[in-house]
Design a protein around this nucleic acid. Structure first.
Ligand code: ZN
Ligand code: ZN
Ligand code: ZN
Ligand code: ZN
Ligand code: ZN
Ligand code: ZN
Length: 325
DNA sequence: GAGTTTGAAACT
DNA sequence: CAGTTTCAAACTC
């Protein structure tokens, strides 16, 4: 369901609109499409009479079930480049995101109660198909031999040295850092406890051990690409900017995404407790609704311009439902 | 303990 | 490189 609009784009849109709705001043402005003149679509007025607006949606089977999964038949292949071109207009500033370094979290530097090198309290694995020679196997991934494991057909032991070495080489070819510790590699001069490559969680909120960040007992950071993350600074009230920005895909923005820049400008105006974050379910449902609109427009042979307008209006309806849910 | 959910790793 | 499949662990009941 995210083929049509890449998720980070969606999240950025939703986030910005929420910011602006909450701020109450500005208006979402969208390029209609690359070939058309810039024609802003104003969403805000549509919210003025919320009741009526929702009433008119009664017959809309899509928005009526926002929050549920809708089966989307067929696939819509929209020219993404064109869409990108018609993305949010914003001053292309080069402002970069500078994390508040004084928010330094105190690290229990006392050192973990190191498991006595003797007991090797390594959790036994239960691999059955990987022969413990792929990174699926935690033993292998940690560079350990399997020991007291429950694995089947295990090659991760000195008896299969050759196979094991080959497997290690394959992994290193794929990722030269495959066997480096995923966390704790605090580079010199790095203030905060450095994290790994970041997670990509969607459904766990990064609050379950499915999430590698959570499992490692570290907060998600800007390099994470998670959706609906709740694994960040314990007291979000203290720094809404920081936590809110964690919801955007800063990591791949290279610091100059206009959406991000714009959000940075807007954020300080916000009352912190009015921010509302999006869950994966909401993002998913919204994307589904937008897809349906796109399909509809395509089916009816509407112009790209009109199709995009339909999509954006649907987006507005979805957003309003989310905001008022 | 069986069955489901999850997201990294592997694969195409 | 993105989308899909595989995998073993985390989780639920
Ligand atoms: Zn194993
Ligand atoms: Zn093992
Ligand atoms: Zn093994
Ligand atoms: Zn996560
Ligand atoms: Zn994370
Ligand atoms: Zn996260």
């Amino acid at each position: 369901e995210l083929k049509f609009l890449r998720r980070k784009l969606i999240i950025s849109y939703l986030f910005q609109v929420i910011c602006q709705l909450e701020g109450g001043t500005q208006i979402l402005c969208i390029n209609n499409c690359a070939t058309q003149e810039l024609k802003p679509v104003y969403l805000l007025p549509q919210y003025q009479d919320q009741h009526n607006y929702l009433q008119s949606d009664v017959g809309n089977p899509v928005t009526a079930v926002l929050g549920q999964y809708l089966p989307v038949s067929g696939k819509l292949d929209l020219n993404e480049q064109e869409f990108e071109h018609g993305s949010l207009q914003s001053v292309a500033s080069t402002a970069t995101f500078q994390p508040e370094s004084n928010l330094q979290v105190k690290v229990p530097s006392a050192g973990l109660p190191c498991r006595s090198g003797f007991t090797k309290s390594k959790k036994p694995c239960n691999c059955t198909k990987s022969q413990c020679l792929k990174l699926y196997c935690d033993c292998f991934a940690n560079g350990d031999f399997c020991c007291n494991c429950n694995c089947n057909n295990c090659y991760n032991n000195p008896l299969h040295e050759t196979e094991r070495f080959k497997a290690i080489k394959v992994c290193l070819d794929r990722n030269p850092e495959a066997f480096l510790p995923k966390i704790g590699q605090t580079k010199l001069g790095e203030v905060k406890p450095h994290h790994n490559k970041g997670c990509n969680c969607r459904r766990s909120g990064c609050l379950k051990n499915y999430c590698e960040c959570f499992e490692a007992k570290i907060m998600c950071s800007s390099i994470c690409k998670c959706i609906g993350c709740k694994n960040y600074e314990e007291s979000p009230d203290k720094n809404p900017q920081l936590t809110a920005l964690n919801y955007m895909d800063i990591g791949s923005n290279e610091g100059n995404n206009p959406v991000l820049t714009s959000a940075l400008e807007i954020l300080p105006k916000l009352e912190k407790d009015r921010l509302r974050y999006l869950s994966w379910e909401e993002v998913k449902a919204t994307c589904t609704c937008l897809l349906v609109q796109a399909e509809e427009a395509e089916k009816r042979g509407y112009s790209d311009c009109l199709g995009e307008r339909m999509i954006m209006e649907e987006f507005g309806r979805c957003l309003s439902q989310i905001l008022h849910a």
